[in-house]
Design a binder for these strands. Sequence first.
RNA 1: GGACAGUUAGCUCAGUGGUAGAGCAUCGCCUUCACACGGCGGGGGUCACAGGUUCAAGCCCUGUACUGUCCA
Length: 1008
Amino acid sequence: MDKTFDPKRVEAQWCATWESDGCYQPRGTGKPYSIMIPPPNVTGTLHMGHAFQHTVMDALTRYHRMLGDDTLWQPGTDHAGIATQMVVERNLKLAGEPSRAELGRDRFLDKVWEWKKYSAGTIGQQIRRMGSSVDWSREAFTMDPSYSKAVIEHFVRLHDDGLIYRGKRLVNWDPVLQTAISDLEVVQEEENGKLWHFRYPLANGATYTDSEGRTLNYIVVATTRPETMLGDTAVAVHPEDERYQHLVGQHVILPLCNRQIPIVADDYVDREFGTGCVKITPAHDFNDYQLGQRHKLEVFNIFTRTAHIIGNVTDEEWTLAADKNAEAADGIGATARAATALNWRSIPEQYRGLDRVVARKQIVADLEAITDSSAAAPITSTDEGKPVYPRGLVDKIVDHKLKVPRGDRSGAVLEPYLTDQWFVDLTRETRHDGKPGNGGLLAITKPAIDAVESGRIRFVPDNWKTTYFHWLNNIQDWCISRQLWWGHRIPAWYDADGTVYVGRDEAEVRAKHGLGAGVSLKQDEDVFDTWFSSDIWPMATLGWPDNTDALKKYYPSSVLVTGFDIIFFWVARMVMMGQYFMNEVPFKDVFITGLVRDPEGNKMSKSKGNVLDPLDVVDGITLDALVAKRTTGLMNPATAPKIEAKTRKDYPKGIEPVGVDALRFTFAALATNGRDVRFDAARAEGYRNFCNKIWNASRFVLINVGSLDAETGTATPPMSLDGEVTLSTADRWIISKLQRLEAEAAQHFAEYRFDLLAASLYQFIWNEYCDWYLELTKPVMQGSDELAKRGARRTLVRVLEVWLRLLHPIMPFITEEIWQKVAPLAGKTGTTIMLEPYPIANPERIDEAAEADVEWLKGFMLGVRQIRGEMDIPPGKPLPVLIRDASVADAERIARFDGAVRFLARLESITVLAAADEAPQSATALLGSMKILVPMAGLIDKAAELARLAKLKAKLENDLKMNEARLASEKFVNGAPAAVIEKERARVAQQKAELATLTEQEARISAL
RNA sequence: GGACAGUUAGCUCAGUGGUAGAGCAUCGCCUUCACACGGCGGGGGUCACAGGUUCAAGCCCUGUACUGUCCA
């Protein structure tokens, strides 16, 4: 054994051994315990957040395996539709290869599969290196054939139960990715924009008088999106708005398009916002769409899939689309629909095919330039080239902050867009198709709420359930179709008439609907939202829809460990599907972890350049290498210098290698109560030091039982620990403390308090076992009492063996490595610590007398050390010590611990003075009423001792004053419980006595 | 606008009514036979602010400020 722990060697060896020996697989007849890994996306590699959550899951898994449970940790990966498709497309671009469009669907998918293989392989290696004990024999992927079968199955069943519908709806459309996305994938960002005020002339030359007495022939509408005016089909005002209510029912002429559109009244309109008059574009705004439905307004798209103004309106495809629009849209007036083509023709030629941003500028400019309208204001002047408003039909332009919806993946500004999509009904009480049975609200949403409300699922920390309920209580139907290639193709087929048939495959569809070979069917081009496949992860990985043994045994899983960011995306949807298909929750506990952030508290992301690869913390990385890693392959290379500067500031010396165990322990220690964690490399180094402490404490034990040669570091035959022994106070004390640690560990695991677990282990191992127990065995080892020596050796070994097991779930590698050497000495025959029982507290071995003894001893040591420290007496210099005012108990303890104290405190002698004995001038420490005196002759500086006494006195006087005041208060004496008052009295008496001693001592020293 | 969380030592965080704790950092002493990735000792906090409840508040209640996140 080297003097320094070398994690790399140990990790490589045990990873391989554990896996090949099948240690990760479920075993035994214990009660089932299972965790489903949140499947990482096959978009690349694992980040710190994964490493964090995997540490938690592995700790739980190893703990329960050691408890004897039949434990499964199910691994796997997620195909992550949009995200992966984007990564592959970007890689093709960077490599200069043909684009997705050029490759075509099949060849592109080959590329994605290639990437998936690479990414899943990398992820697997990362998981292995972290020591995560997942059952690799069950590894799953959300597009495995068996998994895909389950995805299709759950779609078809939901569809057959009337809980899925297809329809033309306004959806969030990503014009860059060219797909619909769900509400959850939209991020609203506040941005600086403008509010444009346009004059819309009243039709038929109507006029009115405004509040200022002016006669106007127009109204002013305010909008943040000028380009959508091409799709306006009404102007709306509030029904009680006195400024405009007399105009309701009249029409305005839509400028540029020269269409007449009605003025309608609706209380959706905010009178305070803008002019109180809003333009309504039902096809490109969610609120306008709703309003349009209420007023039976015309609805028509003005954008293409890429958010350009539509091109040729006579285009066959668009005409067809218009017809389908008319058929599919419900709640939209029939006469209005017929007008769609006319409306399209009203879009002026000059805007056709323009990007929406370009169109916006052009439209504003054109409105400004209109001077021949009766509503137009004359362009009178300019101010240094800037237009002065009003100009033409532009009344004014004001700065305005607005929320811009962007796609969470692409970052593109989204467009509300009218398309045909598949939806899961989550909002209806009855079936959408009118057949008997519950709609999605009763069949899916309510049971998901009930699962948590009833306590069948418990959130840890508890407050997350509020978030969960809030979302479910305000839920919308779920758009599950995506216009992507990478994913599960929707099992729906269309005949030439566009009639849709849903089934598990084409053959089933033909059989079910009696469609002969003569009928040509075409499968839906779209794929499912990724979350519409991961929502059955806890079931499908266990074999669902088949009722397998694994499903029976491991469903529901015991706990889901995940981040709050996917409570809606994933957690809630798994609950829905689990409840619906299994009539049972998918997991009993949901442990929500915080996010791993950078040292400044920022979210880690590639674009910010603050990500850390967990393995770089494990293996270490130089500053230059880290900078290089963070600044290559950036979407925006201009940010590189900033990223470099920040990296050099955060990690001036790069990152020291700490090993897997230390990183895992760091995560455990930082996992406080679901709060976000700022990753602190210094902390990890501290736990690297802890590993080294463990390593060397173990060396000490092995050396002392003769199984390790201290000089050469090689193994030697150990001495026997069998036979009769004497257990010392120290032995009984550490065994007692060990019981308390075991009890704490069990409690912290039950409460998912890994921070407290880590703190308990650290405190026991370092501050009790190493700092005190090992030191207390040293004088024994140097003594001649063979029974006591054997007792100490046996206790050293056995307590070490136990705490290695206690620590193993967090630090698997170092504990296994040492356990292999220690276990035989402790009489253990197992082949791996992984499968040993987790220690359980035995209250009978708690020894309060021994604990009190050691506390006294620690106090004694502290007194001497403080004198040494503050007098600057070298630790090695032997000191004579005198004792005054020792109680009978003190004297007895002094006699008992004489050897230990003299050894540990480096004392030359301990002399208990009789009451009559005169003591020489000394530095004093107090232990209860007993005084520990270190004679000053030749050792102690008078001034220093006086200063030390003064400091002690000041603190004591302060405390005493406060406590006396409390006792003097009638309120306290009358109100507080007797025990508290008694305690306070005793404390005051004690402090008074101490103060007297210090005062006396001070007087004696100053008299010198 | 609503909801949730946070505000405790220089930093990162524990602390569910009885005199404020840890790790890291810092200062001093020490190459003592497991470990300098170490040992011993020290310094450092009106617990965001203002009220209230209580004999007693970092902790409970009310309000305010700031920070963060989520939802409209």
